[in-house]
């Protein structure tokens, strides 16, 4: 019964797709897209285009995470620093990250460093600002408890600050992940000769429509996979948070 519920609508949609696919040059049949998918991506493109793209994404994402949390903790801990930097940070967050691509190309060329830098420059702000907010909002009673029992320095960071701010940090990381995927694709659509984004645009220019659709499908699967992975990690890291019902409050 559950399986029927889960699969009924997707099956219906695929059937619909099948039914209308003959009518348009731009919409090949699901079978044709499936074939293209297997031929295109289970080849050297996987190692030449897909994996390097994902690698750059993870590299930039990790760097933004370290940088965002590393800067967010001191900024969030000091009211004065926070008041000084908050407008500046809000401004940087408000800049749509893709517009930085032309700029970063200017500064860092068109190779891997540029692409990673683009991802970092977009992922950093949501992580940083959410960390600042999380650290600022640490529970005062817990902070007092730490002071009373002499929990300070590194232990305070590890036992109080990071876990206490973790729900907010995870929110920032979740926002950053979707921005990171967008930037991974866009950075490769500009003046690039490899990568997932480049390949998909190439198919489009050469009117390889089924291949193009298979690329869209792959990006969708990638987005789905990464967000599912993220949710698992989040459930694990924040098990206490969901358990305590704080998430619902």
């Amino acid at each position: 019964m559950r399986a029927v519920r889960l699969l009924a609508l997707p099956a219906l949609l695929v059937l619909l797709w099948w039914a209308v696919s003959g009518s348009s040059f731009y919409l090949p049949s699901p079978l044709r897209v499936g074939q293209a998918f297997a031929e295109t991506w289970f080849s050297e493109r996987l190692t030449d285009d897909v994996l390097p793209s994902v690698g750059r994404l993870l590299m930039g994402y990790a760097a933004a995470g370290l940088l965002g949390v590393g800067l967010g903790v001191p900024i969030g801990s000091s009211p004065r620093l926070r008041a000084t930097l908050e407008p500046v940070l809000e401004f940087f967050r408000a800049i749509p990250p893709p517009v930085l691509v032309p700029l970063i190309m200017l500064l860092a060329g068109i190779d891997t460093p540029m692409k990673v830098l683009v991802i970092v420059s977009g992922c950093l702000w949501p992580i940083l600002l959410n960390t600042v907010e999380g650290v600022r909002a640490l529970d005062e009673v817990l902070a007092d408890t730490c002071r009373m029992y002499g929990v300070r320095g590194l232990a305070r960071l590890r036992r109080l600050v990071l876990p206490g701010a973790a729900p907010q940090i995870m929110t920032g990381l979740r926002q950053a992940l979707s921005i990171g995927i967008i930037l991974m694709v866009i950075s490769e659509m500009f003046a690039s000769s490899s990568g997932l984004g480049f390949t998909i645009v190439l198919f489009q220019r050469q009117f390889q429509i089924a291949e193009m659709w298979s690329g869209i499908l792959l990006l969708g699967l990638l987005g789905l996979g990464l967000s599912a992975l993220f949710r698992r990690v989040e459930r694990r890291v924040l098990s206490w948070y969901y358990g305590s019902g704080a998430a619902r409050a």
Partner: peptide
């Protein structure tokens, strides 16, 4: 002048003085 080493406090807000992640 600061929290002395051999003093302990029990706060009213029990829900907030315990670390929920421990």
């Amino acid at each position: 002048t600061g929290p002395p080493p051999r003093m302990a406090v029990v706060f009213q807000e029990y829900g907030r003085s315990l670390f929920p992640w421990m």
